[in-house]
Amino acid sequence: MKSGASESLAEECVQDVMATLWQKANMFDPSRASVATWVFTIARNRRIDALRKARRPEPEELPWGPEPEPDQAEAYEAQQDTERLGAALAQLPPKQRDLIERAYYGDLSHSEIAAETGLPLGTIKSRIRLALDRLRQQLDVKASQG
């Protein structure tokens, strides 16, 4: 963990994140997000707890109902999305990549992100748009089922 945390604090946080992952493993739905995305959300919440007192309320869950078996195709797609985004990230010029990494490690304020997202982050944006279209289709399917 970065974010200016000391090394021992960082290591303690990693252990906390691992413990939380273990405890919540049964709630992980691989058809909704890749493992990496799930780990990211848990690590992010732990960092917010550790470094600042500000809460980060979560949106209301969608009433999707219980899914007895995660859909294999959807789980595969969620994994693919993260891999494609990772590949797109790797292709970015180092300066832009660094910027995105700093945003996700909490080293940039919102106004810095706002000032910098004007950069031509073309490949990332098109990947996000693809991931987005896929998620939107999923939402439509779920909505018409519900």
Binding site: A33, P59, L135, A143
Partner: peptide
């Protein structure tokens, strides 16, 4: 933002895409 996303599927989908980008960022570290 959490309240808006609760009401807006469009922004929910875009938010999940940004969470996926966060996943891609930590995966390579």
């Amino acid at each position: 933002i959490a309240t808006h996303v609760s009401l807006c599927d469009e922004c929910r989908a875009r938010l999940e895409a940004y969470d996926a980008l966060g996943g891609a960022v930590i995966e390579e570290q």
